[in-house]
């Protein structure tokens, strides 16, 4: 008799029901299976109506983030054996509206990535003929950790401040802002400053630290935010004590 494990899965079918519910499924228990394997088993053999996002199944694409027993996890990295024999509760990522079943609407996050200009904006446009941007290992080290973000949004699901205030920029957006601000090739710190140092930016954060705890790529967004607070504070004092200087961020 093969071993099984129970998954209690959040279902929301807006075309049929107004309210969400939980549905239990008994899936085979395999030592090397992850929650994503169990969900795919459900979809393939038990209930084809279950909807969820996934892609690489190896922890680099950021698609399969869900709440597993109340904790945000990449379901491709959550092993059944860590929960067996107890049932596993699978829900969509907290703090996001649910479109259907385990699928969330993350337009807000994408909007914030655009606001923070999460891409490289060089100090000056250089034609390709002038050659590559040169960067020393020391310069790379400044931002490398923050470049590991896979946009999986587990940090937004974990952040109570984001839950209480949806306007909060959030851990990943701020960490990515820092990633580019600290990149020696980038020149757009001033453009990002208004969002990062606004009251819906870093100053909304109360350093709870859940974002760093749940991050699967060890980005440490909480650290990025505290770093940004220190930098922003230094700049504030400099522009307060020496207002004549056009010091970077708040020249307007």
């Amino acid at each position: 008799m093969d071993k099984t494990i129970t998954l209690e899965v959040f279902r929301y079918l807006p075309d049929q029901e107004n309210q969400p519910r939980f549905q239990s499924y008994a899936v085979p228990y395999r030592e090397d299976w992850v929650v994503l394997d169990a969900l795919n088993y459900i979809k393939d053999y038990l209930d084809g109506t279950l909807s969820f996002r996934w892609s690489c199944r190896m922890g680099v694409c950021g698609s399969c983030g869900m709440m597993v027993n109340g904790d945000p996890k990449l379901t491709c990295a959550a092993f059944l054996k860590d929960y067996y024999p107890n049932p596993i509760r699978v829900e969509p990522l907290t703090n996001f509206p649910v479109i259907r079943d385990l699928v969330i609407n993350f337009d807000d996050f994408l909007h914030k990535l655009k606001e923070i200009k999460a891409w490289l904006i060089p100090k000056e446009e250089k034609p390709v003929s002038t050659g590559e941007y040169l960067q020393t290992p020391a310069q790379l080290a400044q931002y490398k950790q923050y470049s590991m973000c896979i946009n999986c949004m587990l940090c937004y699901a974990a952040c109570p401040v984001y839950g209480l205030e949806p306007k909060f920029l959030g851990p990943a957006a701020i960490a990515l802002g820092q990633r580019y601000n600290l990149d020696s090739r980038d020149g757009a710190k001033d453009q990002r400053a208004d969002f990062i140092s606004s009251s819906e930016g870093i100053w909304e954060c109360t350093f709870i630290g859940e974002c760093t705890r749940v991050c699967p790529k060890h980005v440490d967004p909480a650290g990025a935010i505290q770093q940004a607070k220190v930098i922003n504070t230094q700049e504030w004092w400099l522009s307060f004590l020496m207002p004549w200087g056009k010091r970077g961020t708040h020249a307007k």
């Binding site: 140092s197 606004s198 009251s199 930016g201 504070t233 004092w237 307060f240």
Partner: peptide, 15 residues
């Protein structure tokens, strides 16, 4: 978004 004066208050908090 206007320039925040939170840095001053955060300085006091930190100190």
């Amino acid at each position: 978004m206007s320039k925040s004066n939170e840095p001053f208050l955060w300085s006091l908090f930190g100190a």
